[in-house]
Amino acid sequence: MPMMMWCLLHPVAAVKLLKPLNEKAYCASIAVVPILLKEKLDHLLTQQSEDSQTHPVIQQDDTTFKVNIEEETVMQTRHLFSAFEVHFASLYIFILSCPKKLKKTLQFFQRSVLNIQDKEKVSTSVCALLQTLSQY
């Protein structure tokens, strides 16, 4: 089984195994989901802060990742996964709306990684990806 697929299927084990060994491979598993769901990675990870964002955004500088909400930096780290954790959690903590351009990606992580089930209808492409991953 390819390492990327294994990371998606076993995120907790991936944290323990890959983070100290190969952080690039671990972070790639975050970056590949939007691509697989035909969403743009730049809606999650940006090079510059966009004005009037009502949802969290991860801004990448030269050596750090910042999680910004409404132009305020709520966290700064050198690790993409830590920034993603805060990004995702802030949607629930602050009861923010899910950005429409990342809806499928966030739905995937909500259902597969965090095992949060709600009454919202799941996108067919998310269901198809989950089905494909369940075969490995």
Rank of each mutant, 00 (worst) to 15 (best):
T77A: 03
K101F: 02
I95D: 15
V113F: 13
E50K: 14
K66D: 14
S90C: 07
L96K: 04
T132D: 08
E85D: 04
A28N: 08
M5L: 09
V57S: 06
M4C: 09
F88N: 11
H55C: 03
I95V: 13
F88H: 13
S29F: 03
Q48I: 10
E50Q: 07
Q60R: 07
F88P: 06
L91G: 11
E39G: 01
Y136M: 00
F108H: 05
L21D: 03
L36A: 05
S52W: 01
L114Y: 15
L106F: 12
S52D: 06
Q110P: 11
L17G: 01
A31D: 08
L114V: 03
Q107H: 08
L9Y: 15
F94W: 12
I93V: 14
I93H: 11
M3D: 13
T46H: 07
T46D: 00
I30L: 15
S125Y: 09
Q47A: 04
F81H: 14
K40G: 01
M5T: 14
V74P: 00
S125R: 15
E85K: 08
M75Q: 07
I30H: 03
M4P: 00
L106R: 03
Q107G: 09
E50I: 15
V86H: 10
Q59R: 13
L41Q: 14
N22I: 14
L130R: 02
Q59A: 00
K19H: 15
K104Y: 05
L21A: 12
H87Y: 13
S134D: 12
E39S: 03
N22F: 12
L96E: 08
I116Y: 11
L17S: 02
K101G: 00
R111A: 07
P34A: 08
L41R: 08
V32L: 05
L130S: 15
H10G: 03
I69G: 04
Q117E: 15
S112D: 05
E72S: 01
V57Y: 02
A89Q: 04
P20T: 10
M75D: 11
I93C: 09
Y26M: 08
K24W: 07
F65D: 01
S123C: 12
T132M: 05
K40M: 03
T54I: 08
N22Q: 11
L9W: 03
C27R: 05
Q135W: 05
E50N: 10
S123Q: 03
K40P: 00
L80K: 07
T63L: 13
L102A: 08
A14Y: 12
L37M: 14
T105N: 04
F81E: 14
S82F: 08
F94Y: 02
T77H: 00
P56C: 10
A28H: 07
T46S: 12
K38D: 05
C7Y: 07
T54S: 08
V86S: 10
E23C: 09
M3V: 10
V33Y: 01
K100T: 06
R78W: 09
L80V: 02
L17N: 12
C98T: 09
E120A: 12
I95L: 12
N68S: 04
S29R: 12
T124Q: 08
V57K: 06
S90P: 01
T105W: 02
K19C: 14
F65C: 09
C127N: 05
T46P: 02
P99C: 13
H87Q: 10
I69R: 00
